[in-house]
Computed example of a mutant assay.
Amino acid sequence: MASFDMDQELTSVVKDADSPSWSVRAAAGRRLAASPELADVSEVLHRLLLDTQDAGVTQETARALLERADTPGLRAVLAALACAASAGTADQLGGELDWNPHWMTKDGTNRLTQQLRQLAADDDAGVRSEAEQILKSLR
């Protein structure tokens, strides 16, 4: 029964990701970012990170992914940054990366550096490039 509830919840959140309301889309981004398996919802998260209608959706989704403080969350943001079509979206994603409070400590910076080194060898050329650029700026 729990699996059915999880499937039903996921279906509801994915539907919310297409809402005309920016706040509903942003909430969907936050909920999807909390998913234990980001790969299962990566396409929807990617679309929300690149939301063309409201920067708030991009901001909330990116923050939620980065709050995970893990490599999959960081990877999702870097993948979106690599293909952001508008300068505004790229700036929003870059700002979330630059001002993430998890990376403001020595331990956080070390964790970020380790994650970026791992992502610098990613299969996706865009993710690799973004990871390499950030690593260069940290040196």
Rank of each mutant, 00 (worst) to 15 (best):
L66E: 09
A27L: 13
A28H: 06
Q53D: 05
T58V: 06
V24F: 04
T58L: 04
A62K: 07
E67C: 08
R63T: 07
A76W: 01
R68G: 02
L66P: 05
Q59E: 15
R31M: 15
A69E: 15
A62H: 09
L32F: 02
A33L: 02
H46V: 02
L65I: 00
L32H: 01
A28P: 06
G73V: 14
G73M: 15
V77R: 05
L49Q: 01
V41R: 07
L66M: 11
A62S: 05
G56A: 12
S35C: 08
L48M: 09
A26H: 05
V41P: 00
G73N: 15
V41F: 00
A39C: 14
P72Y: 06
A27R: 13
L32S: 05
V57L: 05
D54M: 09
D54V: 03
V44S: 06
V77K: 08
D54S: 12
L65M: 05
R25D: 08
Q53C: 12
R47Q: 14
E60L: 06
G56L: 08
A34V: 09
A69V: 07
A69K: 01
R63L: 13
A39V: 09
T58A: 09
L45K: 00
R68K: 12
L32R: 00
R75C: 09
S35R: 06
E43N: 11
D40M: 07
R47V: 11
D51M: 06
V44P: 04
E43D: 15
P72S: 07
R47K: 14
A34G: 14
E67D: 12
A34T: 05
L49I: 03
D54E: 15
P36N: 13
L48E: 10
L66K: 07
S42Y: 11
T58I: 07
A39S: 15
E43W: 06
D40A: 10
L66Q: 08
H46P: 00
V41T: 04
A33C: 01
E37I: 11
D54K: 02
S35A: 12
T61D: 07
D70H: 10
R63P: 10
L74E: 11
A39G: 15
A64L: 07
R25E: 08
D70L: 03
A69G: 14
T58S: 12
L74M: 12
V77H: 00
R25P: 03
A27W: 10
R47A: 14
V24G: 06
D40C: 08
A33F: 00
A69Q: 12
A27H: 11
R31H: 14
E67A: 13
L74C: 11
G56D: 13
R63K: 15
G56N: 11
L45Q: 01
R75I: 10
V24K: 13
A76S: 09
